[in-house]
C-alpha cells in the first residue's frame, strides 16, 4: 500500500519563505516607514508619560532632565524615537509625492527610495549628535 493521501483532505503548503524573496529598496523603505510608525505609536506613550512627569512639579522636571542627560538607556530610547520620527517623516513625504504621481514609476520609485535612505540617515545621525 502506497502512502497516497486523499487530495481534498490536504492542507496545501504556501511558498512564503521571506528569506527566499527579494525585496527591492522601495519595498524596504516603505516597510521601514510602517515599522517606524508603530515604534512612534508605542514610544509616544512613554514620551507623554515623561512629559507629564516633567510638568507635574519642579522636582519632576529635574528627575526627567537627569534621566535624559545621564542615563544611557534613556538616551538610547530617545534617540531611537527621534530616529523613527526622522525616517517616518522623510518616507512619508515620499509617499505624499507618489500620491501626486510624482516619481511613481519604477525608476522614480527607486530614485526617491535612495534619496529617502540618505536623507533619513543624515537626520538619524544628527539626532544622535543632539542627544549625546
Amino acid at each position: 500500500m502506497s502512502s497516497k493521501r486523499p487530495i481534498h483532505t490536504i492542507k496545501r503548503p504556501v511558498n512564503l519563505d521571506l528569506s527566499s524573496i527579494q525585496f527591492p529598496l522601495p519595498a524596504l523603505v516603505s516597510i521601514s516607514h510602517r515599522v517606524t510608525g508603530v515604534i512612534m505609536f508605542v514610544g509616544l506613550a512613554f514620551m507623554l508619560w515623561a512629559f507629564s512627569v516633567s510638568l507635574s512639579s519642579p522636582q519632576g522636571f529635574e528627575a526627567v532632565k537627569d534621566v535624559m542627560t545621564d542615563n544611557a538607556l534613556a538616551k538610547l530610547i530617545t534617540w531611537g524615537l527621534l530616529a523613527s520620527v526622522a525616517i517616518h517623516f522623510v518616507a512619508g513625504i515620499r509617499h505624499l509625492f507618489m500620491d501626486m504621481h510624482v516619481a511613481d514609476t519604477l525608476e522614480g520609485g527607486q530614485r526617491t527610495a535612495q534619496i529617502t535612505m540618505v536623507a533619513s540617515a543624515v537626520l538619524v545621525i544628527l539626532a544622535g549628535v543632539w542627544v549625546w
Binding site: 527591492p24 519595498a27 516603505s30 500620491d99 519604477l106
Partner: peptide, 9 residues
C-alpha cells in the same frame, strides 16, 4: 496598498 511598488518591479 502601501505603495511599496513590488508589483511595478
Amino acid at each position: 496598498c502601501r505603495g511599496i511598488m513590488n508589483c511595478v518591479n
